[in-house]
Structure formats: structure tokens, C-alpha cells
């Protein structure tokens, strides 16, 4: 049970002179815990994540999640084992937090919510501390609260695998830390496998179990945070002088 990628490749603007190629990537993301995808801009983190989440077509290669090929397995079946959340989520409908989270049950209920569905929805809402806000409309929420509501939706989907594309974007310190703590709990208490694209290497080091570092469309390092959090490794990945110092809660990368 894991996410496995074999020779996965994506060609952007193929044929033109400035074509960009992501991959081929062959790797395996173990089930359980949090895996962070890190790397400089344009390394292909989001590309890989969205291809695993079958939001983006794969040009070559194969991705399987818990043994299911993400391309050939019906989308509906995939939606019960894997959920994926991208950063830009704007839509025109007016929804309350609870209604949005309720949509997470769609793969199971087909739109007709049962009492069992409502129970999962309540759990997801409580889990992310949205209980008091559940009847608010999304346009009455702050960015951080809204982000939490989206995460509650994918948790209510009750999938073993949860993919998140930069969920900390636009969050301040407090909300970023809260979000990571809640994801940590989702991994530990609910047993979800969480794959997450992160920009801040320190967040990745502190909260994740494994780090998958990418650069120029290739996986350059895949291992425990301790293996990645080293001066030379990080400097190579990010093309910047990085110094790792020992902080109060583990190693910290300093780069400014």
C-alpha cells in the first residue's frame, strides 16, 4: 500500500524550443505519515502532486495509488481512496462551511447525504475546529478559516491518501502552525497518508516524516528530515547558501 510512480513524465509546451520536461520520476511514497515535497520554483512538485491526484494528464509512465492505476481506474473509485486539494479554490456558489464539507461525501453518497455522512461531516468539522463557524458562508470567512474548511472537506472524504498543494500559502504564522498541527494529527490519529507541497523547508523538517526533494523535474533526494537537513544537501537543492543550525525544536535552515 503506497503511492508508486514509475517513469512518470510531463512535457510542457512539447515541440517548442523552450519546452520544459518534468521527470522521468520513479519513486515510491510510503503509506502513513506526512511526506513533504520540497524544492525550488519550477522543480515539478505541484506537477507531480497533481498527476498523482489525476488532475493533470500524465504524458509517460504510470502512477498507482494503493495498487490502483490513477489513469485507468474510474475517477469515482479513485475519489474514495485519494483526495487532492489545490491552492486556488474560488467558485461562484454560496456555500456554508458545512455544505462545503458535505461535498466531501459526494464520492460515497452521490449527493444524497445519509445520517452516517452527516456524522463524518461533523467529525471533520470538529477536527479542524470549525464547529462554531459551520453555518457561516464561505465569503464571510478569513483566508485561513476558508483554507481549513477546504481541508475539512478532503478529510470528510475519508480517503486513505490526502494530497495537498501548498496549503500554507497565504496563511500567517499562527494559522500555518495550526494547519500543520492539524495535519499531523490527521496523520497520527486518523491514519491518513498525507502528501503535501511545502515551500518552507523548516515546516517540512519539523512536521513531516519524509521529505522528497525535487529539482529541475527530478527527485534529487528522498529521505527522513534529518538526512535532508544538512548544509550541503539543502544548498544544492535550493541553489542558495543554506546553513542548518540546531534550534530548540530540531534543526533549522537559515538562508537569509
Amino acid at each position: 500500500m503506497s503511492i508508486s510512480l514509475s517513469e512518470v513524465q510531463k512535457d510542457y509546451s512539447a515541440g517548442s524550443r523552450d519546452s520544459v520536461q518534468i521527470g522521468p520520476v520513479t519513486t515510491e511514497i510510503e503509506a502513513g505519515g506526512i511526506t513533504a515535497l520540497v524544492g525550488p520554483n519550477g522543480a515539478g512538485k505541484s506537477t507531480i502532486l497533481t498527476m498523482i491526484g489525476r488532475l493533470l494528464e500524465i504524458d509517460h509512465g504510470q502512477i498507482t495509488v494503493a495498487g490502483h492505476d490513477v489513469v485507468s481506474t474510474p475517477s469515482k473509485a479513485i475519489a474514495k481512496i485519494l483526495s487532492v486539494l489545490r491552492q486556488e479554490n474560488h467558485f461562484v456558489t454560496r456555500l456554508t462551511v458545512r455544505q462545503l464539507v458535505g461535498f466531501g461525501r459526494f464520492p460515497h453518497s452521490g449527493g444524497r447525504l445519509t445520517l452516517g455522512d452527516e456524522k463524518y461531516i461533523s467529525e471533520a468539522i470538529d477536527f479542524l475546529d470549525l464547529t462554531d463557524l459551520e453555518n457561516r458562508y464561505l465569503d464571510q470567512l478569513s483566508g485561513g478559516q476558508r483554507q481549513r474548511a477546504y481541508v475539512a472537506m478532503v478529510l470528510a472524504q475519508q480517503t486513505d491518501y490526502v494530497l495537498l498543494d501548498e496549503p500554507l500559502n497565504n496563511l500567517d504564522m499562527q494559522h500555518a502552525v495550526q494547519m500543520m498541527q492539524q495535519l499531523r494529527r490527521a496523520a497520527d490519529e486518523l491514519g491518513r497518508t498525507i502528501v503535501i507541497v511545502l515551500h518552507d523547508i523548516n515546516f517540512a523538517a519539523h512536521y513531516s516524516d519524509r521529505i522528497l526533494a525535487m529539482k529541475n523535474g527530478q527527485v534529487v533526494k528522498h529521505g527522513r528530515p534529518a538526512e535532508i537537513m544538512q548544509d550541503k544537501v539543502l544548498s544544492d537543492i535550493f541553489n542558495t547558501e543554506v546553513q542548518v543550525i540546531e534550534g530548540p525544536n530540531g534543526p533549522l535552515a537559515v538562508y537569509y
Binding site: V84, F91, F106
Partner: peptide
């Protein structure tokens, strides 16, 4: 298809995530 329409109103990625082709 009303239920599918409800989901599609959430946008492309959310709809794909929820298993709508």
C-alpha cells in the same frame, strides 16, 4: 444530473477530486 451540477459548481479541480469525470 442536478447532483453532478452541484459538484461542478465547485470548479474543475474540486469536481475532479470528488470523482466527477
Amino acid at each position: 444530473r442536478a447532483n453532478t451540477l452541484n459538484v461542478m459548481a465547485l470548479g474543475k479541480t474540486a469536481a475532479l477530486n470528488l470523482g466527477v469525470s
